Amino acid sequence: MTDKRETHSEGEAYATSVAAEERTANNLVEARNLVKRFGKLEAVKGVSFSIQAGEIFGLLGPNGAGKSTIINILCGYLRPDEGEALIGGYSVSREAQAVKRLLGVVPQEIALYRDLNALENLDFFASLYGVPAPERRARAEEVLHFVGLHERRKEPLKNFSGGMLRRLNFAVALMHRPRVLLLDEPTVGVDPQSREHIFENIEKLAADGTTVLYTTHYMEEAERLCRRIAIMDEGRIIALGTLEQLLAMRDQSRIVYRPHGLQELFIQLTGKTLRDL
């Protein structure tokens, strides 16, 4: 049986080689040796990766792996203790305003004002991004059509289902037409119809050139959406590559659930089952 520590070592070496090979001038997102500590806890341990323009890049891992910490560093909400994050070539730490113009963020938690309707929420958040007032209404109408909520644009949010709120949360991030989208577990708790709508929106945006970082612990989401996937555990990237490259890393003697190849690799690398997610 393959020792878990050996598998980690192979995954880390593979991640390092892939990251080095794929660093090009086309990268819109770069994480360079990021380290983040909270007291004695080292939540992120030297994480590096890059994402090219128009790519959907998956960050996969169990709760506590460090995915949300990475997102918060890229957003500028947290400063890394070591390393650097770049969006569109701008330093997140030193050039925050330039980064803000390029970046749209869909957080795990619903970040909406329940006493405002959909149009009013979009208008308010667009103003925070500096979208001129004359443009905000037209852009809100466009975005609401895109996420399938235009007919409900003037209803109070108390009438919205959980899936509708998730889609409106997604719409907020699109109001300033960002070049880069950070999506942190965007389908948690949504119905199948809304999940499919979100998937289709992400695919359309990427086809039009938007760069997407997608964090999830749902294997099937990463398999469907992502051109490349990084698997995180305990603050490190332990494997990185295309789905085909990652599946080739599996220990064939230990495969149990053949139809769920990425899930199988995840369990082999981390030693965790889905009950631990």
Rank of each mutant, 00 (worst) to 15 (best):
M1K: 09
M1H: 06
T7C: 07
H8K: 09
S9D: 11
S9M: 10
E10T: 14
E12F: 03
E12L: 08
A13L: 10
A19V: 14
A19F: 11
A19N: 15
A19K: 04
A20Y: 05
E22G: 10
T24A: 06
A25W: 00
A25P: 01
N27I: 07
E30A: 04
E30P: 03
N33E: 14
F38N: 10
G39R: 04
K40D: 13
L41P: 03
E42H: 12
E42I: 07
A43P: 00
G46Q: 03
S50M: 05
S50A: 13
I51H: 03
E55G: 02
I56N: 00
I56H: 00
L59F: 13
K67Y: 06
S68L: 02
I70G: 00
I71V: 15
C75F: 05
G76D: 09
L78V: 04
P80N: 10
D81P: 00
L86I: 13
L86P: 09
L86Y: 15
I87P: 03
G88M: 06
G89Y: 10
Y90H: 14
Y90P: 05
S91I: 02
S91H: 02
V92H: 02
A96I: 02
Q97R: 14
Q97G: 08
V99W: 06
L103H: 02
V105I: 15
V106D: 07
V106G: 08
P107M: 04
L112I: 15
L112D: 11
L112S: 08
Y113R: 10
R114W: 14
D115C: 03
L116V: 01
L116G: 04
A118K: 02
A118H: 02
L119Y: 09
E120F: 11
D123R: 06
F125A: 01
G130P: 00
G130Q: 05
P132D: 11
A133S: 15
P134F: 11
E135A: 14
E135N: 07
R136N: 09
A140H: 05
G148Y: 00
H150D: 09
H150V: 10
E151H: 13
P156V: 05
F160M: 12
S161M: 09
G162D: 10
G163I: 07
G163D: 06
R167G: 00
N169V: 07
F170K: 01
R179M: 00
R179P: 01
L182H: 04
L183N: 06
P186H: 08
S194V: 11
S194H: 04
S194M: 09
R195G: 10
E196R: 15
F199V: 10
E200Y: 11
E200N: 15
E203S: 15
E203R: 15
L205E: 01
Y218C: 02
E223M: 05
R224F: 08
R227S: 12
R227M: 00
R228Q: 14
A230E: 12
M232H: 05
E234V: 14
G235Y: 03
G235V: 01
A239V: 11
T242E: 00
Q245A: 11
L246W: 03
R250M: 12
S253T: 12
R254T: 14
V256T: 08
H260S: 12
H260I: 05
Q268Y: 09
T270N: 03
G271V: 15
G271W: 12
